[in-house]
Design a binder for these strands. Sequence first.
DNA 1: GTTAATTATGCAGAGACTGCACGCTTTGCG
DNA 2: CGCAAAGCGTGCAGTCTCTGCATAATTAAC
Lengths: 216, 216
Amino acid sequence: MFFPSAGVPESELGLRERKRLATERTIERAALDLAQEHGYEGVTVEMICESAMVSPRTFFNYFGSKEGVFLGNTPPRPTPEMIDWFVNERPSTTLLDLVELFRWMMSTRNRTDPETMRERRALIHSTPDLAVREFARMAEAETELTALLQRRRDAAGIEGSDVFPDEPRVVVLLAFAIMHPAMHRWLENPDDASQETLIADSLSMIRRIIDEPTHS
Amino acid sequence: MFFPSAGVPESELGLRERKRLATERTIERAALDLAQEHGYEGVTVEMICESAMVSPRTFFNYFGSKEGVFLGNTPPRPTPEMIDWFVNERPSTTLLDLVELFRWMMSTRNRTDPETMRERRALIHSTPDLAVREFARMAEAETELTALLQRRRDAAGIEGSDVFPDEPRVVVLLAFAIMHPAMHRWLENPDDASQETLIADSLSMIRRIIDEPTHS
DNA sequence: GTTAATTATGCAGAGACTGCACGCTTTGCG
DNA sequence: CGCAAAGCGTGCAGTCTCTGCATAATTAAC
């Protein structure tokens, strides 16, 4: 299974697009630098704009909110073809497919360079306010995937749908639980092991936890 | 296992406390009514205050933020005794204890009457902005519980701590996945079955999903 | 009844964010 | 090249959430 990772090379972009990318990155850098110095709360949009030499209005045109510049632009939504593939072409064995889809949505985030990404993650995780927002984004993705699973289930005409009406959501939560340690370790040590291995480890760990003896 | 469910009966409260509760409820009602009419975005704090006949400053003294009045006050944190009990007195079998603790934190929310609670839930779920915040609260609870588990593990001196450094978080995610369908069904139909049964059902469903054949 | 703690309120102001209008740059096309 | 259309950057005015501070009123405690 292969999902494409991104679009047009930057070199063959129009002048307009290139300028846009440049100011976007300038603003991001200014924001990140200032936040590392003063903390998230200690930075105002005005400060960022002064440092990046753009007007506040322009800032909001680019990022929509103060948090936006720190969280990065929203991860790509699954394409219609992928949705179709996922809903119609697969057997009803859901969990690992979902993990796969999830992984794609998380990894193809954006075209920011790795160093900036790392700084950003550090900032987010050390700022409760931002961490909460990051989580909210995860929740959005979660909701979206839940809807997708529901559609697949409807398409396949699974029998017990009325007995376990919220099975899709649980599957998503589980997929998330599986992804979490794998992604975590992978971010810390990209060459440590293949993602497949990490996921397999994670899965066996979860099996062990679930099968733990249940002391009355 | 038994956790106390609430505090002092309202009748034997000082005048000051009773007044405070009264205005709190007045503001809540005003907010809820206005939001049902105009939607969350369509309501300003000023409108709520006018309707409840308090000053905006008082509103923020009570709820701290506009969302606060719609989400309800934060669920009670676990008491120090409970934390101690959880960290030190229990064997290392974690999952079901955690579910129990989780259930307590969710159920003892507040002393608002059920009808208001229902309206509030409806509003939250039909307002993306509020739904996100609700999720954020869950995330906070999750973080807190993760830290608790970590402490328990340190106290017990579990061996494989460095092999599975983020097992605590995964356990919390799993507990959450277990709680989710149970809580959902329980909110819809409180007398349908005991919470224990619901949780057992949920657990078996999760086992089934995890043990699903993994096609290639 | 006097003193101390709580509470309600007004006020001033910071800071995030939006709609609108205007001028400049890039683009596409003949 | 020249010209029109589209897109972009900007200033401005204004709304709204939220905070610190000072002050007056209320309740509690002795």
